[in-house]
């Protein structure tokens, strides 16, 4: 309670005269404000910790050397020191966010758009249309199994139940459907890529 009543200016002059505990009060009084300010600029707790420490090392050295100008207020002065150190940090590390592609790090390696562009979307539609036409060329029993398996996502058990053939027959029809599709594709040199 008593600590709150003592002004910053009184504490500073007390510290300059050699009262070390005055510094403790000053640091504890302003630590959150100063640390939050630094953190709001660098968004890294470790870096904020380092800059906070460097700020007060500068404060301590300036006060001990007797170079502190008492005209200004203590907190804005400390804030100015920390602000300058934040600028130094960004200059030194060149860590200002850059969104160009000149450096090693590209923001687009992290942010990618997986949706198809207009060209790929047209190609995809064309490929799907071609596949459907090829499937239509298959014998009816093979086509039926392939459509149920691939387009309706049914299991061979379900296909077997629905068509009234054994699972092995359904598997065989699926196998022949794929073999025949490959044959048609090879024979006509059809390219089905996106």
């Amino acid at each position: 309670m008593q600590e709150e009543l003592i002004t910053d200016a009184t504490l500073v002059s007390s510290y300059i005269k050699g009262n070390e505990s005055a510094l403790e009060i000053l640091i504890k009084r302003h630590k959150q404000k100063i640390y939050s300010f630094i953190y709001s600029k660098v968004y890294d707790k470790d870096v904020a910790e380092d800059i906070f420490q460097d700020t007060f090392i500068k404060v301590i050295r300036t006060l001990k050397k007797g170079n502190y100008n008492e005209e200004g207020k203590f907190l804005p002065w400390v804030m100015r020191i920390s602000h300058n150190l934040v600028i130094d940090f960004f200059r030194k590390n060149n860590r200002l966010p850059k969104f160009d592609n000149s450096g090693e790090f590209s923001i687009f390696s992290v942010l990618s758009d997986t949706s198809l562009n207009a060209e790929n979307s047209i190609i995809k539609e064309q490929v799907e249309y071609d596949v459907r036409r090829l499937v239509d060329e298959l014998p009816e029993d093979q086509k039926e199994v392939l459509l149920m398996r691939i387009y309706n996502d049914m299991s061979f058990k379900e296909i077997s139940d629905k068509t009234g053939v054994s699972i092995n027959t359904a598997l065989g029809r699926m196998r022949y459907a794929l073999i025949n599709l490959r044959k048609i594709i090879d024979k006509h040199n059809i390219v089905l890529t996106n």
Partner: peptide, 10 residues
């Protein structure tokens, strides 16, 4: 807020 160790160091 800074770590207690940082304050102690200072």
């Amino acid at each position: 807020k800074p770590k207690d160790e940082t304050i102690d160091f200072l």
